[in-house]
Design a protein around this nucleic acid. Structure first.
Lengths: 329, 329
DNA sequence: GACTAATGTGGAATCGATTCCATACACATC
DNA sequence: GATGTGTATGGAATCGATTCCACATTAGTC
């Protein structure tokens, strides 16, 4: 590999001058500029980022930790983050946790050793150890999707969205509404969405039947199973079902179709997240759009802000949402 | 940041010894080992990868260039690549071209300056300049999706898949088959899939009507428009349509539904790629599965092979495919 | 007891950039 | 002519690791 020294020699200058030329810092005469430019063009010289980083403590790389990349939400978020960061000359290095909390911490360390300038963490379940690890991080971190006390985060208005959506169902005349959630460890999806649902019912004095509440994990088949469980154990069939994610909703719809329960005539279904699939299935799914694109860009901007202002206060941003009315209600 | 020197001082050893301890290279006595271990544990020392890379010329980072991250294919590929590489202690740094050829080259340079150990390029259109740039790369590169002469690549059997699928339509009695393609610059999707389609028809001596051939780009709405164009300009309505991607197929289906053309009774539709959506739409889409998961892992393995054996011959791998029969035919 | 071999350790050069500092020259100002 | 200022350049230290080499100690062999 060709180095700055060799460029300097070929251009009849010192490496200091070449460096000043490269970074546009300090004086370089026009003649020297021309000579250096020529040599660089001819040799195809590309400066080593490692040597640079070692000296400057800046890497222009941001670490992004995601639970898994192959989901709609993750890939849209990462795409938006990348677009925004690229505009500011940053690249991203990916770390995939495959939903394992241990890997979340391991990745945090890995990224630290690469001296990334900052980290964006797409959090799922937040535990004590993770918070401790984040706190002692020497670089800024922005969490997405979950509230983490003391650090900057961006969350969706999970509570408001779930409440609004439930109210929509009530407005349409539904009184017997089933609910398929996920474990409450996941504060955002498990706890807040459930709370929004419950509060909406309570405000309208609509009773909640335990038989209509089921728990799934994040995948489609678990939505299918949850719907099955609900309908098989209850005598009084609900007229609508609220699912905390689109995948769960689509799984539930599959079961309903299987037993020839018509959507929305016999049973209304709503999801959450506005996955790409949701608009192409039949009937198209009424859901909540959280604008991942916007969230990703905001996250990138917030992180860049923290990188600039190292002593900036932690910020909490709550994204707005919109209800997408389609044919499943 | 704490450095190896400070660790050495605290552990009453030299940095050489600490380094030997860290890399398990050379002699370190048990006593020294214990002292160093203790100090590292207490200080939470994490070695700088930059200093390491500068010296060793190894980064344990692979660059991955994708046209865009938010598509099914890309995100599944990247996920698989990441999984495989992570198992071997590598991380990936992402570069997004947003479909611009200029950015493809720019990213190549960017990754080179970061001294990644290798590059995986998810190629779209391959031009002379790109090939030149790749050839003079001092590190191994594996291309995905497109054939690039002289370097290792993994491609789908686009020709075979398109031919097989067309034969399926013919077997089902279709003789008037429309085709929605993409520009032939994209050799894999544009040229080979089209050729497979044409050859299948020719072999069965089925004539091809120019009015039934349309071109779209990769997005859904262009599939919608292409279908519209075909049906509006032809007197003789085809009975089936072959789309070179699932997105195009779904766009076409939307138009067909709009004009109340029943699928598959009035018109059979087939796509290519087995996108996640394809199985959830109604009617579910008959399509070709290329197993991106497998391709991603193979790409990672092939790249690692080239990193080890620097003088390895370029390899060409063609993936197999399988036709997924569903309800749209 | 002399020699070799194995074990263990630290000093110093090195990787490829940036950056502080010293120096030099040209010109303007009083 | 002394002084100051802006322009231009190169030398040398530095970042934090690895690694070669020299050296010291101990053990084993004849």
């Amino acid at each position: 590999m060709i180095t700055i020294k060799e460029i300097a020699k070929l251009a009849n200058a010192s490496s200091s001058t070449v460096s000043r030329f490269l970074n546009d810092s300090g004086y370089v005469s026009d003649e020297a500029r021309k000579r250096i430019e020529k040599v660089i063009r001819e040799t195809g010289y590309i400066p080593s980022e490692h040597a640079k980083s070692l000296r400057t403590k800046q890497t222009k790389v941001i670490g992004v930790i995601v639970p898994r990349l192959s989901t709609d939400t993750s890939s849209r978020l990462v795409n938006a983050i990348n677009d925004e960061l690229a505009e500011h000359g940053y690249q991203i290095i990916l770390a995939n946790t495959n939903l394992s909390p241990a890997k979340e911490i391991e990745n945090l360390k890995l990224l630290r050793s690469r001296q990334v300038d900052g980290i964006i963490l797409l959090a799922t379940n937040v535990n004590e150890e993770l918070i401790r690890e984040i706190r002692q991080l020497p670089i800024p971190l922005v969490a997405l999707g979950q509230e983490i006390p003391g650090i900057s985060f961006i969350v969706n208005d999970d509570y408001g969205a779930a409440k609004d959506m439930t109210e929509l169902l009530i407005t349409r005349g539904h009184k017997k509404i089933a609910f398929i959630g996920v474990p409450e460890q996941d504060r955002a999806v498990g706890y807040f969405r459930k709370k929004g649902f419950m509060d909406a019912l309570q405000e309208k004095s609509i009773s909640i039947c335990n038989e209509w509440m089921a728990e799934a994990n994040f995948d489609l088949s678990s939505g299918y199973e949850a719907m099955k469980t609900i309908l098989q154990r209850t005598a009084q069939k609900p007229t609508a079902v609220f699912a905390v994610t689109d995948s769960i909703a689509i799984g539930a719809m599959h079961y309903l179709m299987e037993i020839e329960c018509h959507i929305p005539k016999d049973m209304a279904v709503v999801g959450t997240g506005n996955s790409r699939v949701s608009q192409y299935i039949k009937p198209s799914l009424t859901t909540v759009d959280f604008s991942n694109e916007d969230m990703g860009r905001k996250a990138a901007k917030l992180l860049l802000h923290h990188i600039k202002e190292t002593n900036g206060e932690p910020k909490k941003i709550t994204m707005t949402y919109s209800i997408i009315k389609r044919d499943s209600v």
